[in-house]
Nucleic acid binder design. Structure first.
Lengths: 264, 264
DNA sequence: AAGCCCCATTAACCTATGTTATAGATGGTT
DNA sequence: AACCATCTATAACATAGGTTAATGGGGCTT
């Protein structure tokens, strides 16, 4: 028990979940155990390739990655950024083969476990399972919001929006310090995430700097005025669903989890 | 039992699921029961508004709808088309409030049920539940592919791609007849789905007609050469995950479903 | 320390797509 | 049959963002 409590803070996934839901010691233990099998990967290495079979469920413990799709001629779209604490395409594990690739942007630590354990999780710790299901749903929401960005926001708006999104997501796992965080991302990748050319991303970042909204120094980015940046990006945080875990879900699961917990 | 078998074909959701998975009579019955509570809606009516609370899970039985997100100034992005047999934002029901709206494009029949029934489903008919979970996952894949379209495909490619996608999705539920189907969609909505202006959609459709790839007559669209249209749109059907239900999942659930089935 | 590669930066130019405006269709309503 | 609201269709023009190309910095490797 002490072990679990000591370990949770070192797990970004645990930190993320506990940010909106209190966990019992048993739940924490299970979570820690889930993340036991860790693999290490260099920067720019493929964790998964388009067309490849899914093996185990992967959780990003440390480092960044991207999920991306490519066209035959090489044009590429970054679908989402995988940040510490993120499960890599939770629901995708229901598929046989991957319709997208996953590539690290930094050296990374990835936890791996068998998809069967999710089923186990649903039986043993339904609240925890619900939390994961919920996280998975949020990823869809994030992708949909990016679609809105790419489809309907201007380059300046998109870029501002993405920066605010990353800031928000990273601060949940404690990786933002007074508006400053590490952005281990080339302009090419930003371009591929926002549906822009590399040159135009450069122009746009320059504009954001000139306006005084951000500072860039190597991979360190500083956001001076989140509120203003959010307003430039028409950022409405509703889609991140940062509020507490849904009561509806807790309620639905209560019967079940009570029964199970009593049986333990 | 006879009742269930007689009813399934009238349910597009049932037809969709049975297209990749054989169902037992009990499962069919449950499914039919799930879709019992049907509401009717006129064309252009909001089934759900941005910011509204989720009530029950909704299944499109008849008609089309769109899921869309809007910016404060009115710019709008259609996130996905809801076709007959589709569950409307399956995983979204895990959230408290909707981050997008759902609006019908035609008169529609919608089946409604409580989210708690999904939990019930997981306990009683895990294979069926898995099928729904899988459908839900496919929606994320579709949105991601649209993101690739809007971010990286040209107007002509995007439009061709969308038409092929709709053709494929509709044919699963038997709504395509020799390359011809009803497209109850204004050019404005196509524009909002593809991140283009209405004028440019018009130009693009004209081009597709001029090339001889499609025919438009009112809301009837005919695709003359799917293969060529797919090639224009760089359409790779991998993302639709049309193949059989994942073995991995079946396997994972087997223990559980065997036990249950034996118990029935 | 020379050479190399990757990346950021900027300028000049180009084009795919957006905007504005106008005119017909189409179909429902009175 | 006249009216109105929507929707399609095009033309003429405007621009956000793409392309190409050149430069320079920073960190590896040898």
């Amino acid at each position: 028990m002490t072990r679990a409590q000591a370990n949770i803070p070192s797990s970004p996934l645990g930190r993320k979940i506990t940010s909106y839901m209190r966990l019992t010691d048993e739940e924490k233990n299970f979570l820690v155990d889930l993340e036991r099998n860790v693999t290490r990967h260099g920067s720019r290495s493929d964790l998964l390739q388009q067309g490849e079979r899914y093996g185990c469920v992967r959780v990003m413990r440390k480092g960044w990655a991207i999920r991306h799709k490519a066209l035959p001629d090489g044009r590429r779209q970054v679908v989402n950024f995988v940040l510490p604490g993120d499960i890599i395409g939770f629901y995708c594990n229901l598929f046989e083969t991957a319709d997208h690739g996953v590539t690290t942007l930094t050296p990374a630590e990835v936890a791996n476990f068998q998809p069967e354990r999710i089923i186990e999780l649903f039986t043993l710790f339904p609240r925890l399972a619900a939390a994961l299901a919920w996280s998975g749903a949020k990823e869809e929401a994030i992708i949909a919001e990016r679609l809105l960005s790419v489809g309907r926001r201007t380059a300046l708006e998109r870029t501002a929006h993405l920066i605010v999104e990353l800031l928000r997501r990273l601060s949940i796992v404690g990786l933002v310090d007074e508006g400053r965080f590490t952005l281990p991302v080339t302009q090419e990748i930003l371009a591929d995430a926002l549906g822009l050319s590399i040159v135009h991303i450069n122009r746009t970042l320059r504009r954001l700097r000139d306006i005084g909204l951000i500072d860039l120094a190597g991979q360190q980015i500083t956001v001076h005025d989140v509120k203003q940046l959010a307003s430039v990006g028409q950022f409405d945080e509703l889609y991140l669903h940062l509020i507490q875990a849904p009561k509806q879900l807790e309620h639905a699961l209560d019967t079940k989890s009570d029964r199970k917990r009593a049986g333990d």
